[in-house]
C-alpha cells in the first residue's frame, strides 16, 4: 500500500520529554566502540534515539511495518551540542512523499528542542518504504 501524499506538511505530536543521562550516553557510545566518560562530548548521532521514537509513532500512524523501511539518508544540523541533563523532545513533520519504482520515498524532519523550547538539533531523514513483492 502506498503512503498517502496528503501527509506532506503534517506535524506529529512531540515525543514525551527525554532526559539525557550519563548512563544512556555511555551505553550509546559503547555500542559504537567508544569509551565515554562524563564530560566527554555526546556522540553526534545520539539524537537518533529521539528521532527514531518520533519515526515509530509516525509509522504506526500510517500503518507501515518497520521491517519494510530502509533508511535512505540522514542529516543532523546542530544549533548547540547536547549534554547530559538536557530534557529533549522530537517533533516530526513530513516534508515529502514520492513514489519511485513501487517504493515510497518519505522525507521527514524532526526538530529536537530542549525544555525551554529552543531548537538544539534539526535532523532530516529519508525513509524508503519497500513495496511488497507481487505474489
Amino acid at each position: 500500500m502506498a503512503v498517502d501524499g496528503s501527509l506532506v506538511g503534517r506535524v506529529f505530536p512531540p515525543t514525551r520529554p527525554y532526559r539525557v543521562t550519563d548512563e544512556k550516553v555511555r551505553e550509546f557510545a559503547a555500542a559504537t566502540g567508544v569509551g565515554w566518560e562524563s564530560g566527554d562530548p555526546v556522540p553526534a548521532t545520539f539524537p537518533i534515539v529521539l528521532a527514531f521514537d518520533a519515526m515509530n509513532a509516525f509509522l504506526d500512524e500510517v500503518e507501515v511495518e518497520l521491517s519494510r523501511i530502509v533508511h535512505g539518508e540522514q542529516k543532523f544540523s546542530y544549533t548547540r551540542p547536547i549534554a547530559p541533563g538536557d530534557v529533549l523532545t522530537a517533533t516530526l513533520s513530513v516534508a515529502s512523499v514520492r513514489q519511485i519504482g513501487g517504493n515510497d520515498i518519505i522525507g521527514t524532519v524532526s526538530e529536537i528542542t530542549d525544555d525551554s523550547g529552543a531548537v538544539v538539533c534539526t535532523t532530516s531523514a529519508t525513509l524508503v518504504h519497500r513495496a511488497a513483492e507481487v505474489a
Partner: peptide, 11 residues
C-alpha cells in the same frame, strides 16, 4: 572530540 555542527550521508 571537536563539536560537530553538521553531519549527513545517504545510505
Amino acid at each position: 572530540g571537536a563539536e560537530v555542527v553538521d553531519l549527513g550521508a545517504k545510505f
